[in-house]
């Protein structure tokens, strides 16, 4: 499990490879916060290579979305598979985040 960060235009794109769970969520949080501190405003987290997410992973996403908004930035999520979509629906977090089907659509939405 790892997180790769790259820049596409003005958007910082983070790929979550493997699980986003209690054991590694801090790593994701730190990576995004570092970029935010550097003045980045637009963030996209891509879940196309993600296995499963637990409650603490969800918690980190909620926390990041707040912090990004506080800095006047925006966060988008993309490429949730059916199981991850169900997870977001169960927790009603699908109403909290802006979720796009594909990376391209997410990038266009900024």
């Amino acid at each position: 499990m790892s997180f790769s960060v790259k820049k596409e235009g003005e958007v910082v794109v983070v790929d979550v490879e493997g699980q986003l769970i209690v054991g590694n969520r801090q790593e994701l949080k730190q990576k995004v916060l570092d970029e935010l501190e550097r003045g980045e405003k637009k963030f996209l987290i891509d879940f196309s290579q993600t296995g499963y997410i637990d409650s603490s992973g969800l918690g980190v996403l909620v926390s990041l979305s707040k912090k990004i908004r506080e800095q006047g930035g925006e966060l988008r999520l993309a490429n949730l598979n059916d199981d991850l979509k169900t997870l977001f629906e169960l927790t009603k977090l699908d109403t909290l985040f802006q979720i796009a089907d594909t990376r391209e659509r997410a990038l266009q939405s900024f």
């Binding site: 637990d54 409650s55 603490s56 969800l58 918690g59 980190v60 909620v62 926390s63 707040k66 997870l87 169960l90 927790t91 009603k92 977090l93 109403t95 909290l96």
Partner: peptide
Amino acid sequence: DPTTPENLGREDGRGLFLMRKL
């Protein structure tokens, strides 16, 4: 219930909820 509007923005409190739902 972490899904109510006042709880939705909380970072924690979803663990037991998910166990029960799943």
